[in-house]
């Protein structure tokens, strides 16, 4: 269960034209502007928005990587502002950065994170083997991940996020760069998490994907929530005939993804 209330994040950037420019121009960007939404247990919530809308920043704030400038969030009863460690234990995060250690095998990658989550050796090994089997990584389990395909690396990364069996799962564009087969198995996995009663929040910029999976859609544009409801409501509220048209109308730009 995630409940975000008025989350806001600003970035101040300094732009310098060269290494010898002493005083650069400072620019303030409001990446996330008073974003509020709820994601319930046993439901899949999609965070939809064009590139640069603030999806990743929102997920980074929820995963304790960035501190919000204002606003609150409660995850499984833990307050983001004061109970960071509790939240880190409750959350499984597949963030924007999905790198894995390529000199280590999938199993070693998983065990490292299991131990950091405080699992004991036996539990960690059991859970790692279970995830390796579920994701079909068996043949690769003990080979260094160097040379793995994009899909195989993504599987290791998602297994790592789920290693401690978290109640709430954050997935930042989990199908990005995957082929059709891998995308389908990723969707299966996400549905499987819902069946287990988990709270899944995932971000995407693809309307079709969100509508195929989500019970609830939160559309973000330029850092603000512009829509919060079910996929059918996207059509009714926007008055469009297709989901894609509805999405484009809701984010208020015909340029769509290239805005």
């Amino acid at each position: 269960m995630i409940s975000a209330n008025q989350l806001t994040k600003k970035f101040v950037t300094k732009e310098r034209s060269s290494a010898f420019t002493l005083r650069g121009k400072t620019r303030e960007i409001i990446a996330v502007d008073r974003v509020s939404f709820e994601a319930e247990d046993g439901k899949i919530t999609g965070l939809l928005g064009p590139n640069g809308a603030g999806k990743t920043t929102t997920l980074r704030m929820l995963s304790t990587l960035l501190t919000p400038d204002s606003g609150k969030a409660i995850i499984d009863g833990a307050d983001l502002a004061t109970q960071k460690v509790a939240i880190r234990q409750k959350l499984g995060v597949l963030g924007d950065a999905k790198g894995i250690y390529w000199r280590l095998s999938p199993r070693e990658n998983l065990l490292y994170f299991a131990k950091l989550q405080g699992m004991n050796r036996a539990d960690a090994e059991r859970r790692a083997t279970q995830l390796i089997d579920e994701l079909g990584l068996g043949a690769l389990a003990d080979r260094p991940t160097q040379g793995f395909s994009q899909g195989e690396r993504m599987k290791v990364a998602i297994a790592r996020a789920l290693i401690h069996d978290p109640q709430t799962v954050l997935l930042d564009e989990p199908t990005n760069g995957l082929d059709i087969m891998s995308t389908r198995s990723m969707r299966e996995l996400i549905r499987g998490l819902r069946a287990q009663g988990k709270c899944v929040l995932f971000s995407s910029h693809i309307m079709q994907e969100v509508s195929a999976l989500c019970d609830r859609v939160v559309i973000i544009a330029k850092g603000r929530v512009v829509f919060d409801g079910t996929p059918p409501e996207v059509l009714s509220q926007s008055g469009a005939s297709t989901l894609e048209d509805g999405f484009v109308r809701l984010i208020g730009s015909d340029e769509g993804l290239f805005a």
Binding site: S63, T64, L65, R88, G95, G99, L116, Q117
Partner: peptide
Amino acid sequence: ERQTLEPLLTTPV
């Protein structure tokens, strides 16, 4: 650079 720091920082470490 290998993008492994961010996942690491989402754990209790």
